[in-house]
């Protein structure tokens, strides 16, 4: 009996949490749509008192059709493949539009 009560309490908490979190997200979206870009939905994260880590992202344009590994045999070696990757760029910056 006791464990059923505990279980129901947990389940009720889950539903309450789902409702609360979803409402908060939808409200934040509405706020963002009606306000300046600076007040946009990023506030959800900030509000949670945990600074989000935003690592920069390496280039995701790996696939291309250029040749690489050039240089005659005598100049070849480890260094030839350094900095000759398919893409040596960083695409993390969110476009400022």
């Amino acid at each position: 009996m006791k464990s059923t009560t505990v279980h129901n309490l947990a389940l009720a908490a889950a539903f309450a949490g789902l409702l609360g979190g979803t409402s908060a997200r939808l409200n934040a979206q509405t706020t963002a749509q009606n306000s300046a870009p600076s007040a946009n939905a990023g506030l959800i994260l900030v509000a949670q008192n945990q600074a989000p880590a935003l690592p920069k992202h390496s280039c995701k344009g790996k696939n291309d059709c250029k040749g690489q590994g050039g240089g005659d045999a005598k100049h070849a070696g480890k260094n030839s493949c350094k900095g000759k990757g398919a893409c040596a760029t960083d695409g993390s910056k969110t476009p400022k539009v």
């Binding site: 009560t5 505990v6 279980h7 309490l9 947990a10 389940l11 009720a12 908490a13 889950a14 309450a16 949490g17 789902l18 409702l19 609360g20 979190g21 979803t22 908060a24 997200r25 934040a28 959800i44 994260l45 949670q48």
Partner: peptide
Amino acid sequence: VDKAFCQSGLLPSARAKKIRQYFVHAAEL
């Protein structure tokens, strides 16, 4: 909801509070 604290000694009210918090965060994000 039972999986989250399967081996925990937390009081039921504390568990419920935590579970609510987990779902708030997950739904909010």
